[in-house]
């Protein structure tokens, strides 16, 4: 479903090229649950962003259902993300001036869903992550754990087939972290493909397989 073919990524940092990823080959099948581990700065986030069509590679191709993502226009990639891909961020990235409800409604708004369905679906999703009583709270009025759960509800709004999570538990205490992880397990059990970046070995162990990254190279798990 997702494939990287000989992908490299160089960043230009103050005119010096930094290689974040070199010649990566990854294949993620439908329903797979992959964890990506490695030391900080080894290129995990870079890999995840490229899988999600957010960052163009310097070399190589990224394929989504056999379509080369970076041969499409940015707006076509955005349309694919909207329909099929959900991102979960370490810092949640909730929109600060919108309530929990409204944050969950964003993907539905982007998909052109009518307002009544938006409200209904957002309520269901927030209830599912255990925030049925926090609908009108803004992110600043929620605990970090609750914020990450709002982010999870938002990811699910458009029912994506692929979930890409970048250190989803990085900012959470162990208990809340575990909650989020079991939620990801649940989503995978429903048949969704999950790719999760983490540096927590216990978290990584929940996945079906693990990719190890060192200095921009995949050393095992390919």
């Amino acid at each position: 479903m997702l494939r990287m073919e000989g992908v490299s990524k160089n960043y230009n940092h103050r005119s010096a090229a930094v290689t974040a990823l070199s010649d990566a080959n990854v294949a993620v099948d439908r329903g797979d649950y992959v964890s990506v581990v490695g030391p900080s700065g080894c290129g995990k986030s870079t890999l995840l962003l490229m899988l999600g069509g957010m960052l163009s590679p310097t070399r190589g191709r990224v394929l989504f259902d056999d379509e080369s993502l970076y041969d499409l226009s940015p707006d076509q990639r955005a349309a694919i993300r909207k329909k099929h891909i959900g991102f979960v961020f370490q810092t949640f990235n909730l929109v600060p001036y919108l309530t929990a409800m409204e944050n969950v409604q964003i993907p539905l708004l982007l998909a052109g869903v009518d307002e009544q369905t938006q409200t209904q679906r957002a309520e269901e999703l927030l209830a599912r992550v255990g925030l049925g009583d926090r609908l009108d709270h803004k992110p600043s009025e929620l605990s970090v754990g609750q914020q990450q759960r709002v982010a999870l509800a938002r990811v699910l709004a458009n029912d994506p087939a692929i979930i890409l999570a970048d250190e989803p538990t990085g900012n959470l205490d162990p208990d809340t972290g575990t909650q989020v992880l079991s939620f990801l397990d649940e989503l995978n059990a429903e048949g969704r493909t999950v790719v999760m970046v983490t540096h927590d070995p216990q978290a990584a162990a929940r996945a079906k397989r693990t990719l190890h990254l060192v200095d921009g190279a995949i050393v095992s798990g390919e």
Binding site: G52, I80, F87, F89, I106, N158
Partner: peptide
């Protein structure tokens, strides 16, 4: 950051 988030959620440039 917010714009980036919206784009990650699938917002196109027109939006």
């Amino acid at each position: 950051r917010e714009i980036g988030t919206l784009m990650a959620l699938g917002a196109g440039s027109t939006m």
